[in-house]
Amino acid sequence: MPEPTAVVLDAMGVLYESADDVGELLVPYLREHGCALDTADIEEAYRRASLGELTSAGFWEATGVAGSADDEEYCARHTLTPGVHELLKAADTAGVRVACLSNDVSRWSELLRRRFGLTESIRDWVISADIGVRKPQPAIYHEMLRRLGIAADGVWFVDDRAANVAAAREIGFTAIHYGRDVTSFDQLTAALAR
């Protein structure tokens, strides 16, 4: 792999352990709070929130749990993937910029990055709800490149979803499928240190 100028990490399934946060974390949380919507309707409400069409408060209202569900309580269910902070230290030592490109709800993304102490090491966050575009649409990758101010061939892009990896490759990123090309942050850190 070419030496990177920047490493762009996905959030769910890469920075945070749950790859299917809607199915594994959000739906059970909603059920515990009395949500009676079927899963397809919950997924659609989440999609709308991840495009910025609903705030997190609007999402809780749309799923019938406003007043009992809470952003911080829900976000506390997420766990950081082991080795993240070690990669961030190695990137800093190597002079490599680290960014995050994620399909997520704005408020939840902010809470998670603060909770896990990521705001100092990861300064560039392109979140779907903030710009109204989700991966794998090309516009979200181009927005990341615009913010980084570098060419795609200087970026390692790490994501756990094949469609997102394929879209990044088409744009020119060195795209790494987390879970297939690498299976841990230790491997990413070792590759960065070479």
Rank of each mutant, 00 (worst) to 15 (best):
A163N: 11
P4A: 10
E53Y: 05
A166D: 12
I42M: 11
V65T: 14
A91L: 07
D70C: 14
R31H: 03
C75R: 05
S106Y: 09
A90T: 13
A94D: 08
W108N: 00
D21P: 04
L188N: 02
E44C: 13
E143W: 00
E143R: 12
Y74S: 06
L80V: 12
D130A: 05
L192N: 11
T55E: 03
V84C: 07
T55R: 01
T63K: 09
W156H: 14
S18F: 03
T55I: 06
E73I: 09
V27K: 04
Y141C: 08
P2D: 13
T93M: 07
G172A: 13
E3F: 12
G95V: 14
T119E: 15
E86G: 09
T63W: 02
V155N: 08
T93L: 11
V182C: 09
A167T: 14
T39C: 01
A190G: 07
A175Q: 09
V22F: 10
G58I: 00
A76V: 10
F173M: 08
V7L: 13
A36D: 10
A40D: 15
T119M: 08
G132C: 08
E32S: 13
L15S: 01
V65D: 07
T81D: 09
V126Q: 00
D41C: 10
T174Y: 15
L15M: 15
T5E: 15
L192Q: 06
L25Q: 06
L9S: 03
V65P: 09
L51N: 03
L148H: 04
G154F: 07
D130P: 01
V165I: 15
L87Q: 04
A6M: 08
V27E: 11
C100V: 09
Y46E: 02
P4G: 11
A66R: 13
D21C: 12
E61M: 05
V96I: 15
A152Q: 10
S56I: 08
G13H: 07
A91K: 05
E43A: 11
W108Q: 00
A66F: 02
V7D: 07
T119W: 10
L188E: 00
S102M: 01
H33C: 10
Y46L: 03
P4C: 09
A66M: 05
Y29Q: 08
V96R: 11
V105F: 01
E32V: 05
E61T: 11
A191D: 08
F173N: 04
P136V: 12
L9E: 03
V7T: 10
L30K: 04
D21F: 11
C100S: 15
L9N: 03
M1N: 06
A175I: 12
A139F: 04
E44K: 13
Q137F: 13
E170F: 08
L30N: 01
R180V: 15
A19T: 11
T5K: 12
S121D: 14
R48I: 01
E170G: 12
W108K: 01
G132L: 07
I131F: 06
